[in-house]
């Protein structure tokens, strides 16, 4: 009966464990496939410690170069290395959208990408959208329509709204429902989130 737990946790390979284990390989593979990333920017293993890689990321307009463990996820990079805690972790399994950020123009789940995988990329987080003194129109819309309750999913909701409206400036309500369906709100403030998206669309048109 000894070591029951060890067998349990190692026997069942979670998606997360797979990600972590395959970190270096995944990173290299994705980087070569990523368009627009110059060869020189490819993450290369350091001589000293093959478990560490230098990552170059532009976050909210600021260029960062950091040596991080290959297993570092993008959301860990954002929250722990850059101390930008506006991006939340709700599930760490790409199932809730609380960690949504914009990477190279697309809304992505930052919990399920590796920092090395997106090296060379351009990231926008909630901190890069507007400030408490100069709110972005989407943030204004979420305030005007009270598109939140507890606020924990809100950063992700707002970043998905940004990606949606960048691509489709005048969505119908059904477009918005579909394109916002990657973001859970457990308080279920959905009616007001939908109104916030539509209001943001109007504010941005104005």
């Amino acid at each position: 009966m000894a070591d029951d737990d060890r067998e349990q946790s190692e026997g069942a390979v979670s998606r997360r464990a797979f990600l972590k284990g395959g970190a270096a390989a995944t990173g290299a593979l994705s980087a070569t496939l990523m368009p627009g990333v110059a060869e020189a920017q490819l993450p290369l293993a350091k001589d000293a410690d093959p478990r560490l890689t230098t990552v170059d990321l532009r976050v909210n307009g600021v260029a960062y170069r950091k040596e991080v463990p290959n297993s570092r996820t993008l959301v860990e990079f954002i929250r722990e290395d850059l101390k930008l805690t506006g991006t939340k972790v709700g599930c760490d399994r790409a199932m809730c959208g609380a960690c949504t950020v914009i990477l190279n123009g697309r809304n992505v789940y930052a919990c399920s990408m590796l920092a090395v995988e997106v090296s060379g990329g351009d990231v926008t987080t909630i901190e890069g959208l507007g400030t408490t003194d100069a709110l972005h129109p989407i943030q204004q819309a979420f305030i005007e329509k009270s598109g939140f309750q507890c606020g924990f999913c809100t950063s992700g909701q707002i970043m998905s709204t940004k990606a949606l409206l960048d691509k489709m400036p005048r969505p119908t309500e059904d477009d918005a429902r579909l394109l916002m369906s990657g973001n859970l709100c457990r308080c279920s403030a959905y009616k007001r989130i939908l109104e916030s998206v539509m209001t943001a669309s109007r504010l941005l048109q104005a």
Binding site: G86, K88, V89, E127, L135, E144
Partner: peptide
């Protein structure tokens, strides 16, 4: 009217327990 802490909640500046270091 909007919540008095609305700006903190929509700018990511509201500190939840996990955000504290």
């Amino acid at each position: 009217g909007p919540n008095i802490d609305a700006i903190a909640r929509v700018t990511g500046t509201a500190k939840y327990t996990g955000d504290i270091e």
